[in-house]
Design a protein around this nucleic acid. Structure first.
Ligand SMILES: [Mn+2]
Ligand SMILES: [Mn+2]
Ligand SMILES: [Zn+2]
Ligand SMILES: [Zn+2]
Lengths: 154, 154
DNA sequence: ATCTAATTGCAACTAAGTTGCAACAACTTC
DNA sequence: GAAGTTGTTGCAACTTAGTTGCAATTAGAT
C-alpha cells in the first residue's frame, strides 16, 4: 500500500504552492494525480461526485494551482481547458500530448522527446515549448490496417 | 496593385475546397489572408463590420473551411478558437506559434523549424505536429532588459 | 482559544459556440 | 435564359464553459 506516501505527496504539493490544505483541494489534486491524461473541470466534478467540491471551487482551484505552478494547462484543442500535474514536464518543455483522430483519446507521451525550436527570428526568448501530436493510436491504427487488408482482398 | 491576383486566389481557394463562392465566404477568407496571426470568429465579426456576414455564418464558415483543409485551427490557449490559412504549413507540421507572456500577442513563426517528435511509443502514427511557444517577444524582452539595468545600477 | 485572511458555495451573469428552421442564392440542367 | 435543386444564410432560441459578487466558513497564525 502506497496510500500514506500518496497523501503526503498531495500535502507537500499544496504547501510548496503556499495554498491552504483544504479537503477540496486535496480531493481535486488526488483525482489529477491518479488520472493518466489531462482532465477538464467537468471531469473532476464527476470524479469527485456529489460530496465533492462545488463546481466553482474546482474552476478556481485549477486556476490557482496552475498559477502556483503545480498544475499545467495542457495544450489540447477542445472547448474546455484541461489540467494535469506539472511533474513529468521539464523546465522549458511540457511532455507532448497525442490526440487520436480515430477514437478521440488523449495520451500523455511522457517519454517522447521533441528538440527545442531552432532558427527563431531574432529577439524572441522561449520560456516554454508545448507540442501536440495528432494521428492514430495503436488500437485505431490496427483497426485501420485490418480494414485495408479486407478491402484489398476483394 | 495586386488586387486582381488576390481576388483570384480567394476564388481558387474556395473552388479547390468545393465550397460555393459566396460574398460572405470571400469576405471571411480575405480578412484571414490579410491578417498576420490567427483570428477568432469575433475578430472577423469586427473586421467585416455591420455589412459583413452574420456571426453564425462566420462560425459555420470557419468550421467548413477547416474541414475542407484550407484553414487550420491554431492551437493557442484562450477561450476562443483561432483560425488561419493553411498555406505556410507543411503536410505534417503546422508552423509554430509564439505567445508573448508580456504583451499577450501571438506571432506566426513561419520560418522557425521544430524537428518531428522522436522516441515515440510503439504503434502511434503521427499525422500532424503542432507547436506552441511561450516567452518574450523582442519588444517585451527589450523592456525587461532595460528594467534590469536600471535596478542593478541602484 | 481567538483572530484573520483565505477559501468556499450559492446565485446570477457573461462569453463562445450550436441548432432548427424558413428564406435565399449559387451552380446545374434544360 | 428560365427553372430547378441543393447548399448557404440569418434569425431566434438554446447550450456549454467559465466568471463574479457576496456572505458564510475555516485553515493556520498568534
Ligand atoms: Mn500529459
Ligand atoms: Mn500562424
Ligand atoms: Zn485511437
Ligand atoms: Zn510581447
Amino acid at each position: 500500500m502506497m496510500k500514506f506516501a500518496f497523501k503526503e505527496k498531495v500535502d507537500k504539493l499544496l504547501s510548496s504552492a503556499r495554498l491552504k490544505r483544504t479537503g477540496q483541494r486535496k480531493a481535486i489534486l488526488e483525482v489529477l494525480l491518479k488520472a493518466n491524461s489531462p482532465l477538464t473541470a467537468d471531469e473532476i466534478v464527476h470524479a469527485t461526485g456529489n460530496t465533492g467540491p462545488n463546481r466553482v471551487t474546482i474552476y478556481r482551484t485549477l486556476e490557482s494551482m496552475a498559477e502556483a505552478g503545480i498544475l499545467h494547462k495542457a495544450f489540447i484543442e477542445g472547448r474546455s481547458r484541461c489540467y494535469e500535474p506539472a511533474d513529468k514536464c521539464s523546465e522549458n518543455q511540457c511532455h507532448p500530448h497525442f490526440v487520436c483522430t480515430g477514437c478521440g483519446q488523449t495520451h500523455c507521451l511522457t517519454d517522447a522527446t521533441v528538440p527545442m525550436a531552432t532558427s527563431m527570428p531574432a529577439g524572441f526568448i522561449i520560456k516554454r515549448q508545448q507540442v501536440r501530436l495528432e494521428g492514430l493510436c495503436p488500437e485505431c491504427n490496427m483497426t485501420e490496417n485490418k480494414r485495408h487488408m479486407h478491402n484489398d482482398g476483394k
